[in-house]
Every structure is written in C-alpha cells, then in structure tokens.
C-alpha cells in the first residue's frame, strides 16, 4: 500500500514537471477507466461481503480439516474458487490449517485456487475478456491449482 502511494506521488510529480498536458490527459484517462469499472466493482464487493458473512473463516478451516484425499483436494479447490479472501488473511488461515493437520497438498490447492480462480469476480472478468476467455481461464486455473497442490504434496 505505501509502495503504491509513494510510486503514485513520484510518477505524478515527474510527469507533471516533464509535460503538464500529458499529465492531465493521463489523469483524465485513469479517471474515466475507474468510473467505468466502479458499478461492477461495487457489485462484486457487495457479493464478497455477503459471502464472508455467510461463510466465516472458521467454517472453512473446520470443513477442510475434516476431509482428506481426493475429496479434500476437490473441496479445497471449490472453496478456494468461490472465496475471495485477501492474501494477508489467507496465509495466516493456511498456517492454522497446517497446524491442525490439513495436508500441504490441500492447503496449496486452497491457496492457489483462491488466488487464481475468481467465481465471484467472473462477471467483472467477462466485461474485460469476454465470456469464452474468462470462463476458460478460470477452468484452466481450477485444474492448474490442483496440479500445483499435487506437485507440492510430493515434496512433503
């Protein structure tokens, strides 16, 4: 976050001194793109808020802890795909899962699908990439997450 703020200030100052007109054009360009994204973004944030309310983190840990083997892996991939948990919450959560005996494979599948697959953000993704590409990327990432988990599991 701080890095981003510093980067923005530096770039803006530099840009402003080198070429004022271009800077104004850039700011306008960014603002227009932001405003176009805003309605869809607010909708997604709303979905996520409901999701987190319905499925607290504790439930996820309990649910995955009780399952192992192929069922555990598929469950982890599914939960990871529909969850939208920021990284700074997800990693501590994964740490808890490991300490409760959930296998590294399941944890890796959960973490990776969480990061790569976004079922809740799919409407947003479709707006950018179109239906075919967005759905395909998510499906490939879903199986990709399982592959990554299985590969990691071979080293533990």
């Amino acid at each position: 976050m701080q890095i981003l703020i510093i980067a923005a200030i530096i770039c803006l100052t530099l840009s402003f001194f080198v070429n004022r007109q271009k800077t104004v054009a850039g700011i306008k360009r960014g603002t227009i793109m932001f405003l176009k994204l805003l309605p869809a973004l607010l909708f997604v944030l709303f979905l996520v808020s409901i999701f987190i309310y319905l499925v607290p983190e504790k439930v996820i840990v309990e649910y995955l802890g009780a399952r192992s083997g192929a069922l555990g892996i598929v469950t982890a991939a599914l939960i990871g795909s529909v969850s939208l948990i920021p990284g700074f919450v997800a990693f501590p959560l994964a740490g808890i899962m490991v300490s409760q005996g959930v296998s590294y494979t399941v944890v890796a599948v959960f973490i990776t699908s969480l990061m790569m697959v976004g079922a809740l953000t799919l409407p947003l993704e479709i707006k950018y990439f179109g239906k075919k590409a967005a759905i395909m990327r998510n499906i490939l990432s879903f199986f990709g997450a399982i592959v990554i988990g299985l590969l990691i599991g071979m080293f533990y």
């Binding site: 703020i5 360009r29 793109m33 944030l45």
Partner: peptide, 23 residues
Amino acid sequence: MFLREMIVLLPLMFLLIGLFDVW
C-alpha cells in the same frame, strides 16, 4: 471495510495506469 481498502488503492492504481497510457 472492503470499500475503505479499495477507495485508496484503486484511484492510485488508475492514476498510474492513466500515466502509463500516455507516456
């Protein structure tokens, strides 16, 4: 909570994207 996080992060990101676009 999400909104608070996004309201700072996204405008900054779009500012950088806009500058990237023109430069």
